[in-house]
Amino acid sequence: MSTVATPAPRAAPLGDVARFAAALTSGDRVGAAAVLFIAFVVLVAVLAPVISPYDPVHTTSDTLAAPSLQHPFGTDQFGRDMLSRVIWGARIILLAPVVGISISTVIGVPLGLLAGYSTRWISAAIMRAMDVMLAFPGLLLVLIVVTIIGAGLVNVMIAIGISFVPVFARVVYGSTLAAKGQDYVLAAKAVGCSPLRIIAVHILPNVTTQIIVIASSAIGWAILTATTLNFLGFGVKLPTPDWGADLSAGKDWLSLAWWIATFPGLAITAMILASNYLGDQVASVFDPQSHWRDNATRVGMEEVS
């Protein structure tokens, strides 16, 4: 038995994509299904021009047709094929949250690093500002931002990005504080590294795990927010195919043509469920707790062997 604490094995280097993918699709079966579903949606979005049977914005005289072999998801009040609209809608549903979360990462991570590494005053100023933003319910914050900067897909992305900044800043702040207390940071200082180098070389690589976990668990919420905004008409404008906007348009025809709202609605539900599970799955791959579990079993085995 060790007299010195056994170090937790570090997460695999991030470049190791294949091993990461293998870890993501192993273990929990629901989580693995969620990862595969998201991969499927990504594929559909990329191949939309190839696989969609019709032009999603082309109106025809065949309006409000029920699902059939010719139109598996039916057509809407302008005779547009719903299957094609759902396929093309996948692009928006992926684009908005991914860009939004990227914006929050780019702003939130440096803020967190700065707050974690700098003096008390700068750190207090940044973190109190983040607390004020966190005090607003997320959706309200997004609506405020959209109201200020106006509607439109780009603005929805910016709004989502801003609303997630405090979450990233908080998490990175905490991890930075922890990393800053490590001897290797002191060692870097003793060697004569500049603060910028210490942050970039010694702290940032040691907090990337937490950033990835946060980003992947925020995706689900971002998808929900983006769809909500599109549903409310703040985001994309019809006839651009989008699940939220189609759901909104279809709700007026629910008694006559249930399929217009139902298929985009199902797609949204599945997507959000899957992305929430994706967040959990990524978190469990990186979670020190799960490593601790592996490590404990391994140490146990060492001792009897």
């Binding site: 010195v4 604490a5 170090p7 570090r10 490590q182 001897d183 290797y184 002191l186 060692a187 870097a188 003793a190 060697v191 004569g192 070389v201 010694h202 690589p205 040691n206």
Partner: peptide, 20 residues
């Protein structure tokens, strides 16, 4: 002056950056 005075730390586990 840093190059002329250096330090060796107690805990060899936490004094090396795990990512380097």
């Amino acid at each position: 002056l840093r190059p002329r005075m250096q330090m060796v730390f107690q805990d060899p586990y936490s004094s090396l950056n795990p990512r380097l």
